[in-house]
């Protein structure tokens, strides 16, 4: 019989105050948010927090025993460096539970100026192996690393075993098929990337058009996809377009699909993952409420009855309905890579 002492923290996205409350109310152990500027990787119009909203969010979450973390996960450039250091000061003033950072210079600054503020290494820091993690730990005493979504279960397990710090993995949401922090496809086409501007395939570069060939989506005028009448159209993220090599037109890089780890939740718990992260600060409060609630139930169900855990078909169906392309995958986690 399996005995589960500890289940991973459920870390949920908050793109707005209502979304933050939805996550807290539905069982998040921690929420993460960003300020309304380029200091975070969901720098989308109408999203994120000013200082006043952040304070309200922190008060709300802390009252309900939920931790709050700040995503500061883009790469500052010298001319706008103060924006990031100010955000760090705000994080300290708000008494946040952690800051999520990718940039080496900023990690060093945070270590020196805000030693008591817990530092988590962002997924944008591209740490995919134990030596890279050892580097971040040794230099900046990061408390937790968030792993890129490119590792197999065996590799995740090896990393957890080899590293002295907490390991967080993604559990649900949009799936980057590229190593995070190392993809500049978006700036190649639009001039803005996650690293520099906190955006991928930015909305202002998107255009839609109806043509005799069907509905077409473009990014900075580059044709990303063409849809037949009646075919569901998705957001034109570059890596999810249909492109051509030879005579084949297909999803040459990645199908539109979402990550969902509910089927392998027991393995993730048993190998000692410290936290499971839900992606999606750009999503609505209703979405956050649903996904958070299902993951809370799943984790608690597993803890209560580890031997008989099975993901409820109803959870899977509900998650599928809110997924990209209405389909989900285990991503790299189910690959046989050593």
């Amino acid at each position: 019989m399996v005995i589960v002492d500890q289940i991973p923290d459920l870390v949920c996205p908050a793109g707005s105050l209502p979304a933050l409350k939805a996550a807290v109310d539905n069982g998040a152990d921690a929420v993460y948010f960003g300020f309304s500027n380029t200091t975070n990787a969901r720098n989308f119009p109408g999203l994120n927090f000013d200082m006043d909203e952040a304070q309200q969010g922190v008060d709300y979450a802390h009252q309900k025993n939920c931790k709050v973390m700040l995503a500061l996960n883009t790469y500052p450039q010298s001319e706008n460096w103060p924006l990031w250091t100010q955000a760090l000061q705000s994080a300290a003033d708000l008494k946040l539970d952690a800051v999520i950072i990718a940039d080496l210079g900023l990690l060093q600054y945070a270590t020196q100026h805000h030693p008591d503020l817990s530092r988590h290494l962002s997924v944008q820091g591209s740490a995919t192996n134990q030596y890279a993690i050892a580097f971040y730990y040794e230099q900046f005493k990061v408390k937790r690393v968030i792993l890129p979504r490119v590792l197999s279960m065996t590799q995740v397990s090896n990393v957890v075993e080899a590293t002295p710090i907490e390991v967080e993995v993604f559990g649900f949401g949009s799936l980057c098929v590229m190593v995070e922090g190392r993809c500049i496809m978006s700036s190649y086409v639009t001039g803005e990337s996650p690293n520099t501007s906190g955006v991928c395939s930015p909305a202002h570069a998107v255009s839609w058009e109806e043509t005799p060939n069907g509905r077409q989506s473009r990014l900075n005028n580059v044709l990303i996809d063409r849809y037949q009448p009646g075919e569901a159209a998705g957001y034109p993220t570059l890596c999810k377009g249909r492109f051509q090599t030879g005579d084949d037109i297909f999803y040459a890089i990645e199908e539109p699909t979402s990550l969902n780890v509910l089927e392998i939740l027991p393995e993730l718990v048993n190998i000692g993952v410290a936290a499971i992260k839900i992606e999606g600060r750009q999503r609505s409060p209703a979405y956050i409420a649903k996904v958070t609630g299902i993951f809370r139930t799943a984790l608690d169900t597993y803890k209560a009855n580890p031997d008989s855990y099975q993901p409820d078909p109803d959870w899977l169906q509900q998650l599928q309905r809110v997924s990209e392309g209405c389909s989900t995958t285990l991503g790299a986690l189910h690959r046989p890579w050593q």
Binding site: Y75, P76, Q77, A102, D103, L104, G105, L106, Q139, N195
Partner: peptide
């Protein structure tokens, strides 16, 4: 990823 002088200095 080296986007600022603090990182290059480090």
């Amino acid at each position: 990823n080296m986007y600022n002088s603090e990182t290059i200095k480090l």
